[in-house]
Design a protein around this nucleic acid. Structure first.
Length: 750
RNA sequence: GGGCACGUAGAUCAGCGGAAGAUCGCUGCUUUCGCAAAGCAGAGGUCGGGGGUUCAAAUCCCCCCGUGUCCA
């Protein structure tokens, strides 16, 4: 709007909107004036050379009239401080307006565009103002802090239990939470969800510090009551908001519970090693376990002092982090189109059923072709592009760039500008995409209906093979919820409701359907394309859709994932593709049943039997291996050539055709009786392996191996009970074995 | 989006380069009219997945996956 690309909805324009501000979070309750949420009122003017609305003088005049006239401020107390404002590449002078030292408004006059160091005048100048409603309220009442003026009785009520700062934080957070939670934000560990979590957990912490505290839900309700008059959805979503908050309370309690346990164990370990918990450990616990320092200290027997600047130190821990922005440029790889090329008339919006058409080539470069009109749908809104043919050539991709639709052909386009060309959209693919897109809207509607109004689309993707929708939700979907969602969407399909796609003015659409229209994100423009599934779901959407729900065909849910904290993904297919998948699945089941030799309906039992059999076989094999080794052990002990008694120690020496693990097991069996030394040799990949086990007191297996390993250039080691070494290929393993035996004998000898 | 912590038996966790453990739960036996309880015995593990280093990896390194948490 400031650049003039999009016309303002009105000129002059007034707006009033709630604004969330998190950077001053620590100041809330402390400064007496900061809040996480406030109402910002504004009046704007967009001055074109041919149409001057108003600029500096009139703006100041209007502001002054409001403050001194309408609101009755003493004109002598009103101050104007001149500053330079810069933002979004634009800059200009600004005035900070205050009364009796309190800043009430900012008046910005955008005049210049910055290009590096150079400033060029803007094609249109803009008046941008901001008046803080809460500040005006405060100024008009003259109370000690803004909280008393703004929150009134709700604040006073909390003051009976809490100190001023805590009372202010509680009521401030409760008001902000009412807004963000009823706006579809679900508490989570990233992005806006984290702000919701932060506000909730800060509130819970404050409440937990007093005995018998008021309930968080009650505080939220009280804070929401007033604003629900202007924002009715806050009242309407009350029950859903309660469920979201309750889930978060529970989750936090679990996290703290786990953390307490971890803290106790860690202190025990540190103390057993003679150490002590330091304040740096408190920081680490807060960071990784989420446990506030005062809670951690409760668990410790010898707690460190909590640093005064604890939260500043937390911030310092995160200072060196550099957020990388994975900015994806959708127009990357697309060719430049000369500005003189006329924009493409897009016909798929109005008529998704016409798939064969004629158009004129208006631009062609390499494989890319722009037509004057097209029915090809370009990739966008989470729906992949159509395929088909232009003339005899295959269209392999379709993309949108600015006002043009670009068709990419399988090879360089033989067309010249002005040429007439026949386009054919692949009907099977298009039908499937339409079914998946409409199915996505159906799922979105059903999810909101069944899970609650906090559900908001967080992403979607519609391909011919399958489609998926990501929605905000605070816990995993239960089997029962999935079943109900499945039933509900297929019910709407069977009811054959009309799906209407039409254009409507933004204001009118918002008035009729509310902001839930913007499931796919904000859409620019004064006109919106609305896709309305009658009586069920309405969204602003540019995709191609069926005209009746029955055309979608049966929808099969294929999977559900939690893709991140607070976001659930459903994958599904409908129409022909759903049938294909069903056939595939049935074939897999039939084949599995055939291989198991059971009827399909006995498959689970058949698998159980098979698993039991496998288990049994494994058991038997293990037992047999053990028996074999036991037999070997008996043989060795009975063989005078391999077993000798020295003092109270029995030394068993043998070279066997066994691997490392088997040598180890055999040594263990020989060592069942105390006072035995097992010196066993085997081979692996042409290298000699020596394994020594000892249950004889005073004879260390490690020292035996240490003494013997030089004989076969071995590397290895171990502990007093067991040790092993592997030699170089071609070295005499026998010598190592002898050396080990001599060492053991010497150690055992009298 | 980034940092940190954590993934080991059905559950909760210990072990942090040398022969996979504890507690609870489970099964059996002893005891009891029976239950609870106790004692004894036993089953249960590709130590999240994949690479690498090493004579030797649950343990060290790298890459994934999952969970938690803090910060934008």
């Amino acid at each position: 709007m400031t650049s003039g690309a999009i016309p303002p909805p009105a000129n002059p324009l007034t707006i009033s909107q709630p604004v969330l501000r998190f950077i001053d979070l620590e100041e809330v309750g402390r400064s007496g004036r900061h809040m996480t949420l406030f109402e910002m009122m504004a009046h704007h003017a967009f001055n074109r050379p041919d149409h001057e609305v108003y600029f500096k003088e009139r703006t100041v005049e209007l502001c002054h009239e409001l403050l001194s006239g309408e609101l009755g401020a003493d004109p002598r107390s009103i101050t104007y401080k001149e500053e330079v404002w810069e933002g979004g590449g634009n800059l200009g002078p600004s005035l900070s307006v205050g009364a009796s030292g309190l800043e009430l408004a900012t008046l910005v006059f955008m005049e210049y565009v910055r290009n590096g160091e150079a400033l060029t005048p803007m094609p249109l100048t803009v008046v941008d103002t901001g008046y803080g409603l809460e500040r005006l309220t405060w100024a008009s009442q003259g109370s000690r802090t803004a909280y008393e003026a703004v929150f009134g009785a709700e604040y006073d009520e909390l003051r009976r239990t809490f100190p001023p700062r805590e009372s202010a934080i509680l009521i401030d957070h409760a008001r902000a939470l009412n807004f963000i939670l009823s706006d579809g934000v679900v508490p989570s560990n990233s992005k806006e969800g984290y702000f919701a979590r932060l506000l909730l957990r800060r509130s819970i912490r404050i409440l937990s510090k007093v005995p018998d505290p008021p309930g968080l839900l009650a505080i939220l309700d009280r804070a929401g009551r007033d604003i629900a008059r202007d924002f009715p959805e806050i009242g309407e979503h009350r029950d859903d908001l309660h469920r979201v908050v309750e889930a978060e309370i529970e989750r936090y309690a679990e996290a703290i519970q786990r953390a307490r346990q971890t803290i106790r164990r860690q202190e025990e370990r540190v103390r057993s090693e003679g150490g002590q918990i330091g304040s740096d450990q408190l920081l680490a616990w807060y960071d990784s376990l989420g446990v506030p320092p005062d809670v951690a200290v409760e668990e410790l027997q010898r707690p460190p002092a909590i640093p005064e600047d604890f939260y500043a130190q937390v911030a310092a821990r995160h200072e060196s982090e550099r957020p990388t922005t994975d900015y994806i440029d959708r127009t990357e790889g697309l060719p430049e189109v000369p500005g003189a090329v006329p924009p493409t008339e897009v016909l798929y919006y109005l008529d998704p059923h016409t798939l064969s058409f004629e158009g004129h080539v208006v631009h062609a470069a390499g494989p890319w072709v722009v037509l004057d009109r097209t029915y090809f749908y370009p990739t966008g809104g989470g729906q992949v592009a159509d395929r088909g043919h232009l003339g005899d050539l295959e269209v392999v991709d379709v993309a949108r760039k600015g006002p043009w639709v670009l068709h990419r052909l399988e090879r360089d386009a033989p067309f010249r500008a002005g040429e007439r060309v026949r386009g054919k959209v692949d009907p099977k693919r298009r039908t499937q995409l339409m079914q998946h897109h409409t199915a996505t809207h159906l799922l979105n509607g059903a999810l909101r209906e069944i899970l609650g109004p906090h559900v908001w689309q967080a992403g979607a993707y519609k391909a011919p093979e399958s489609a998926r929708i990501d929605v905000t939700h605070y816990k995993p979907l239960s089997k029962e919820e999935l079943r109900r969602i499945d039933r509900r969407v297929n019910e709407i399909v069977r009811e054959d409701r009309p799906v209407k796609s039409y254009f409507e003015s933004r204001n009118e659409a918002e008035r009729r359907f509310g902001f839930t229209l913007y499931q796919g994100g904000a859409v620019p423009g004064k006109e919106l394309r609305i896709v309305e599934i009658e009586g069920f779901d309405v969204e602003a959407c540019g995709g191609t859709h069926c005209t009746h729900t029955s055309e979608v065909g049966a929808i099969s849910l294929l999977g559900v994932d939690r893709i991140q904290d607070g976001v659930v993904r459903l994958t599904y297919a409908s129409g022909e593709r759903a049938l294909e998948l069903r056939e595939e699945h049935e074939a897999i089941l039939a084949e599995a049943a055939r291989r198991l030799g059971v009827p399909v309906d006995h498959l689970p039992d058949g698998i159980d039997r098979l698993l039991a059999e496998v288990e049994e076989t494994r058991h038997a094999a293990r037992a047999k291996a053990k028996d074999d080794l036991s037999a070997t052990a008996e043989e060795l002990l009975a063989d005078p050539a391999r077993t000798e008694a020295v003092g109270g120690t029995t030394v068993v020496t043998a070279r066997l055709d066994l691997d490392r693990a088997q040598l180890m097991e055999l040594s263990r069996l020989l060592g069942r009786v105390a006072g035995r030394v097992a010196i066993l040799a085997g081979e692996r990949d042409g290298r000699g392996v020596l394994f020594v086990g000892s249950t004889a007191p005073g004879i260390s297996a490690a020292s035996v191996v240490e003494a013997a390993k030089a004989a076969f250039a071995g590397k290895g080691g171990g502990n007093p009970a067991a040790a092993t070494a592997v030699g170089e290929p071609g070295t005499p393993l026998e010598r190592a074995l002898d050396e080990a035996r001599r060492t053991a004998r010497r150690a055992a000898g009298p």
